[in-house]
Nucleic acid binder design. Sequence first.
RNA 1: GGCCCCGUGGUGUAGCUGGCCUAACACGUCGCCCUGUCACGGCGAAGAUCGUCGGUUCGAAUCCGAUCGGGGUCGCCA
Length: 598
Amino acid sequence: MWRRGGQVSTERTRCGEPRATDAGKWMVIYGWVDRRRDHGGLIFLDIRDTSGIVQVVVNPATAPSVHDALQNVRLEWVVRIEGELRLRDAKNINQNRETGEVELHATACSVLSQAKTPPFPVNEDSEVDEKLRLQYRYLDLRRTRLQRTLKARAGFINGLREAMNEQNFVEIETPMMVRATPEGARDYLVPSRVFPGSVYALPQSPQIYKQLCMVAGFDRYFQMAHCMRDEDLRADRQPEFTQLDIEMSFVDEDDVFAALERTIAYAWHKSGFRGSIPTPFPRLTHADSMRRFGADKPDTRFGMELCDLTEVARTSGFRVFAEAVAKSGMVKALCVKSGADMHRTHIEGELTDVVKGLGAKGLAYLWNTADGWQGHIVKFFSEADLSAIGDICGATVGDAVLMVADRSSVVSAALGALRNHLGRQLHLYDPERIDILWVTDFPLFEQDEATGQVSPTHHPFTQIHPDDIDRLDSEPLSVRSRAYDIVINGREVGSGSIRITDPVMQRRVFRAIGIDDDEAQRKFGFLLDAFEYGVPPHGGFAAGIDRLVMEGLGEENIRDVVAFPKNQQAQELMTMAPAPVDDSQLKELGIQLRRPRA
RNA sequence: GGCCCCGUGGUGUAGCUGGCCUAACACGUCGCCCUGUCACGGCGAAGAUCGUCGGUUCGAAUCCGAUCGGGGUCGCCA
């Protein structure tokens, strides 16, 4: 408690708060020195806390002791300043700062903490080597960029939670140490001290538990769930991440979709994320998405959809195409508007590398020019073929047509990637635009091309599309499921499904992926048993919060929306985890490590 | 595991078709000066053997190879 000028306050004023209307008040601020401007006599200090920055004036004539005390203050020192807030003269107002009309005239101060010179500038958002930023994450987090990001993230999560509560969802925490399941991603394991040789796993998702919550009668469950998967990282993938996990009873797709649309749209707009998202979200079937965009997570911010040239190619004189079709492959193309001026070296170099990287053997191209069709393969096509290609692709004079011939999976992957590449390179969309949609009717199974092994596309508890049940045994790979994804700007941000609750059907699906009844009982017996005691029909969803925040803020890397992220090798560079432990700890757990040879 | 990109004082960049580099610029740091600045200003100083190792060459930051570190991507992520 302190007294001055008749006003009494025991409260800290946050640096971003003082306004002209507060002029004349005595206040105390705490914060970090953002900048100092020392005029020999007068010293100006910008003091920063998480709310903003305020200017402090230190006048040697009126407060000599304070001037002495702050003479040697450096950037990032932590200080307490007490003084009178005064209006600035009109000519000294700083328009660029919320607190720019006022300044605090210091009458007392103390240095709470000194600071070494930071390894990179904290008071500006300059580019800094990410290794350094991760190593000194607490300093990076102090910068305005990450301060803003983490606050926006918190606001978004608050919005999600509000919307969930408002819709009568019950927040339930599920265990972090669970039973390992061999399916799915690699598990992070936690050895048991009490049962030497046995381990827990960290959850890849709370899937089983949330379904058991449905059996338990909580008909609307949600959780901000942490999930861990020991797989290689990507720009949008961390080994641990956060999902808005949802499960609902007595529902179909429309109910799940409506709940999520309402929730995401509410939180999105409330937290001031960029763009705007419509409800309901558009829907696209998986088959249509693959056909039109070559991807199960299409970027619908721009057109340039895939064109099917298989029928032209079948009878064309271009043997590469005809043979691909004969081997039950296909030929598809992208029409690049005004692409006739694309340089040949660009197509044959960079663009060809893109499709080759996805398994295509090459990239064929034709230019539609004022002098007719041109390109390395034009001689293999009749006038009728060329005109058909032009019609199918909508390629008018000035356009280029880029073609890939191969198996359907390769064609889709190659052209899907090429389409994204060109979309970015040719600026085919507004970077601030947000496109959100459902992709529905995913295939129930997918097949490993190397081993032929069939596995669930989503997970083994996903219900079969009712129209496809009779093909489950005869043509399993053609069977659709009741699984769905949410996609934003070409990024998958969540997935879910309506679940199987019929034990007979569940056994059939297990058998289709090579799990017999005994094995099913062994691995998932607790779930199957639970379903014997009155299971409601149910379905749900898991939305990746990190990725939603990325899109909402326009960040291109997941590490920039996570407080303490890991690098590409899943190391945390600040604490240097993972790290070896004492032998005594291992001994207690009954385990011995096989260390790599030095 | 494959492929691609990057690595120069504390930070960010320039140089990188070999010699003029005894490595430049900005910010930061240190010292001196400065009472109305706000990316304050002025003067001065220190600070990098160019990730590491090896090779080519009369000569390497620059060319080649290996290696380490970081990133992107394919595989992987039920």
